[in-house]
Design a protein around this nucleic acid. Structure first.
Length: 476
RNA sequence: CGAGGAGUAGCGCAGUUUGGUAGCGCGCUUGGUUCGGGACCAAGAGGUCGUGGGUUCAAAUCCCGUCUCCUCGACCA
């Protein structure tokens, strides 16, 4: 088999998925490890994916009327302690600056693990009247959480994300925005990452520290485990009260605002890798792939070959396709394997034979199919159609896979065997924390989200009447 | 943070048991031949053996500390 040597560079995706993931992210040059524990360097190929994610997401926020802003990295320690649940949730994982300018600081400064507190503080200054509302802001920034175990993109001490924060005059509006943003994320996952997700409300146990309600979007990874790919939170008046976010209403009385927040992070990159990847490495969704089409010249020193490749690349670039000619000295076979590992959606091979016939050989990464019947003449149309077909196919394939791995359980044993088999397990739940804890202890599975379709009658744990139907899974 | 494993050339590793001249494969550089699934020949460059201390005439090798990475558990975007 021609690819044996190549495939052996990365661990087996079926039998050793965690190692496969680590191998792939490092060998494809998405990331490298930083010198400080839990830190990662996002290399150009990885950062380009993030930039594409930002571009698509940012456009959606702006279309929804959200404005970008930037708040400071350092937060006075006293801010963190103003909201009781919030400090309890985040205290164990914050990094604190105690010295600066060669002296011990009067008040320690927290490196933001999230910005609810400092933004709440500023909102308190900026909101005075009902006319100031709603106030809807987003920031793209880094945050730091001192995690115990780390893995590139999935969990690192420092990561990049966007955090949106809004304050509304009424709880209904803030709650509605919490759902709107959840649906925005879902749409983004589908159309930009070609990734199906489950969305829904989180249980009390799983909700954000300081929130009234948390909603999440969960994606199924190749091994059947779940990854929280984004969250939105409704805070009620918790933070508004802690930070004095008050306004005078139409009726002339002073009221507290209602806040909400939402975020997605560089973890999305990990999510798309673990959703779409295969034994050969990455399969990148075209909308975020740094290179959508790589053109590999065959016999590139022969006259006219490189010229033809460059001309084709230029034509594709003019139509907005991210195209690249690999004119390095490596052999064609080497290039094929390299770009496959790096997940480029479409490869075009162009050699003297093709050029003479006015054709091009096209390989698509998602299906590994190669075709040599396309004409060079209408390459633009061919490539556009192919990229959109790949997008659709990647989504449908992942969706079919996820749906085929959602099973119902009516007992703890069924739930255990379900998650052991790499499934998401739907089960009834009475709503008691004790039962949720018992499931975790028994099956090492957690409640990912509550299913909107609440159709299972009895609690999987205690057998009493179920209040909710829950998606349980092992999680990253 | 608990249990296990690993750090030797850019990458993958051998050498450590039994202390005694720093090795192999790939990659890299130069020149040439090649090019339709990880090509070939020739010549070359590259190492404070993670790091700090100790034992010794002598340490990659033995002892103690420490840092980082990987896997599995408890917590999280």
């Amino acid at each position: 088999m021609a690819n044996e040597k190549f495939v052996s560079q990365i661990a087996d995706i079926e039998t050793d998925f965690p190692q496969w993931y680590t191998d792939v992210v490092v060998k494809t040059k998405l990331v490298d490890y930083g010198p400080v524990k839990g830190t990662m360097v996002i290399r150009p190929y990885g950062y380009a994916i993030w930039e594409n994610i930002q571009k698509e997401m940012d456009a959606r926020f702006k279309a929804a009327g959200v404005e970008n802003a930037y708040f400071p990295l350092l937060i006075p320690m006293s801010f963190m302690t103003k909201e009781a649940e919030h400090v309890e949730g985040f205290a164990p994982e914050v990094a604190v600056v105690t010295h600066a300018g060669g002296a011990k600081l009067e008040e320690p400064l927290v490196i933001r693990p999230t910005s609810e507190t400092i933004i709440g503080h500023m909102m308190g200054k900026w909101v005075e009247s009902w006319r100031d509302l709603p106030l809807r802001m987003n920031q793209w920034c880094n945050v730091m959480r001192w995690e115990k175990t780390t893995r590139p993109f999935l969990r690192t001490s420092e990561f990049l994300w966007q955090e949106g924060h809004s304050v509304y005059a009424t709880g209904e509006e803030a709650e509605q925005e919490t759902l709107n943003m959840l649906h925005l994320y879902e749409e983004f996952a589908k159309n930009v990452l070609c990734m199906p997700v489950l969305i829904g409300r989180k249980t009390e146990k799983e909700k954000f520290a300081g929130a009234v309600a948390t909603f999440g979007m969960e994606a199924m990874m190749h091994d059947g485990k779940s990854l929280q790919a984004g969250t939105t939170h409704y805070m009620g008046q918790n933070f508004a009260k802690a930070f004095g976010v008050q306004f005078t209403g139409v009726d002339g009385t002073l009221k507290y605002g209602y806040t909400m927040s939402y975020g997605v992070s560089t973890r999305l990159i990990g999510a798309l890798i673990m959703t779409h990847g295969d034994a050969r490495g990455l399969i990148l969704p075209p909308p975020v792939a740094p290179i959508e089409v790589v053109i590999v010249p065959i016999a590139q020193k022969k006259e006219g070959v490189l010229e033809a490749c460059n001309a084709l690349a230029d034509r594709l670039k003019k139509t907005g396709v991210r195209a690249k000619v690999d004119d390095s000295d490596n052999s064609p076979g080497w290039k094929f394997n390299e770009w496959e590992m790096k997940g480029v959606p479409v490869r075009i091979e162009l050699g003297p034979r093709d050029i003479e016939a006015g054709k091009m050989t096209v390989f698509r990464r998602d299906t590994l199919e190669k075709q040599d019947s396309f004409t060079l003449e209408n390459a633009e149309e061919t490539v556009k159609a192919l990229l959109s077909d790949i997008c659709e196919n990647m989504y449908e394939r992942a969706k079919t896979r996820m749906q085929s791995r959602i099973v119902n359980a009516s007992s703890l044993e069924e739930l255990l065997s379900g998650v052991d088999g790499g499934n998401f397990v739907r089960a009834g739940w009475c709503g008691e924390r004790a039962c949720e804890d018992k499931v975790k202890e028994f099956a090492q599975a957690t409640a990912r989200v509550l299913d909107e379709k609440n159709d299972l009658p009895t609690c999987v744990c205690c057998g009493k009447k179920a209040k909710h139907t829950v998606f349980f899974a092992r999680a990253y």
